[in-house]
């Protein structure tokens, strides 16, 4: 379970102070599929970064599956990310120099798994997203939809408790967008908590709950489906 209480994030430079998030309190249950919406600059990505332990809040508390992480050290956050979180990004963020299989492997590299175990899991993940026939290809040789499926496979391969998807369909056409959404829904159905930032009402409607942000604050929460 993810429990955010009075989370704030303030960026300070020598002359300017920008509040990205203010007084965010949220609870996200295990296995829940949550969509976060809001206009550009409302703090969606900042919230996702905090949820994904890529950033720390300026204020408030954050319970991450029982761990209090708001003030945790980088090493502890890294370990939690490694063990529990998968990421999917709008721009895929695949490593150009690695093949599809090697890109997926990156999510397992730091977990101390044997080579055999890694190969098995990679094969399963690629099979699951329907891209196993492209395992030896490089990202530039794939379409956008295929690249995002690789990114989803990379997020799934470590069997995370939480998948964070930042506008995963933003760069895709409708058909590919739908395919990726289906993969995320399947993951949620399998018990993985999924938090997705999106601008698409249609894709948000496929989540169980939609949280709307405006100017760094939660302005509404809508429970859409059971």
């Amino acid at each position: 379970m993810l429990e955010l209480s009075n989370i704030a994030k303030v960026y300070r430079t020598s002359e300017v102070e920008t509040t990205a998030l203010a007084d965010i309190s949220l609870t996200i249950r295990e296995g829940e599929f949550v969509a976060i919406m809001g206009p550009s600059g409302c703090g969606k990505s900042t919230l996702l970064n905090i949820l994904g332990l890529l950033d720390t809040p300026s204020d408030g508390t954050y319970g991450f599956f029982g761990y209090q992480v708001a003030k945790a050290k980088e090493a502890a956050l890294t370990a939690l990310r490694r063990d529990h979180i998968g990421f999917v990004f709008q721009s895929f963020n695949l490593i150009d120099d690695l093949t599809v299989a090697e890109n997926v492997e990156v999510a397992l590299l730091y977990r101390g798994l044997s080579r055999g175990e890694r190969k098995k899991r990679i094969a399963e993940a690629l099979e699951r997203v329907g891209i196993s026939h492209r395992a030896k290809h490089r990202p530039q040789q794939l379409s956008g939809g295929q690249q995002q499926r690789v990114a989803v496979a990379r997020a799934l391969v470590s069997k995370p408790k939480l998948i964070l998807a930042d506008e995963p369909t933003g760069n895709l056409d409708t058909a590919n967008g739908e395919a990726v959404m289906q993969l995320l829904k399947d993951a949620a159905a399998a018990g993985v908590t999924v938090v997705m930032v999106t601008h698409s009402l249609a894709h948000a409607a496929e989540a169980q709950r939609t949280i709307r942000l405006l100017d760094g604050r939660v302005v509404s929460e809508t429970l859409l489906a059971a």
Binding site: G52, A75, T78, R81, R82, D83, F87, L109, R154
Partner: peptide
């Protein structure tokens, strides 16, 4: 940069 970001997001430590 992307590679560093992905590896870190995937649990890679700075030391790694």
């Amino acid at each position: 940069a992307v590679e560093v970001g992905v590896r870190k997001a995937s649990g890679g430590r700075r030391r790694d």
